[in-house]
């Protein structure tokens, strides 16, 4: 509850001060390169890993990537890189 409050305040401050999103608030940074590669910064762990679906827990919530031939080419506490043919990205 406290975390949610803190996140809400951080967002408001960012909005008032016209700062870029994520400077104060803790949110995941997801960088898509077409539908071939996605880089996720702020990855907190893997929830589900399948051939055509990968669910990651990030600082801002859970993100689900669906596609074909998905492969996690890099995984470390800071970020994860997923390659393959991405079809969709959902925030759960």
């Amino acid at each position: 509850m406290k975390r949610e409050k803190r996140a809400a305040i951080s967002s408001k401050v960012e909005k008032i001060l016209d700062m870029p999103v994520g400077v104060l608030s803790e949110i995941a940074r997801i960088e898509l390169s077409g539908n071939r590669q996605v880089l996720i910064e702020g990855c907190r762990g893997i929830v589900k890993y399948d051939e055509d679906q990968i669910q990651l827990r990030t600082v801002g919530g859970t993100v689900r990537f669906t596609g074909r031939e998905l492969c996690m080419t890099s995984l470390n506490p800071a970020c994860a890189v997923i390659t393959g043919r991405l079809l969709s990205l959902e925030f759960l």
């Binding site: 762990g45 893997i46 996690m72």
Partner: peptide, 27 residues
């Protein structure tokens, strides 16, 4: 397998080319 990946990441063990084929996980 997901727990395996998370635990390895938490222990700073570098894994790459992680892919799932059927019930097997390759890395």
């Amino acid at each position: 397998p997901e727990r395996f990946l998370n635990e390895a990441s938490n222990r700073h063990i570098a894994l790459w080319d992680v892919s799932r084929k059927g019930i097997s996980l390759f890395c």
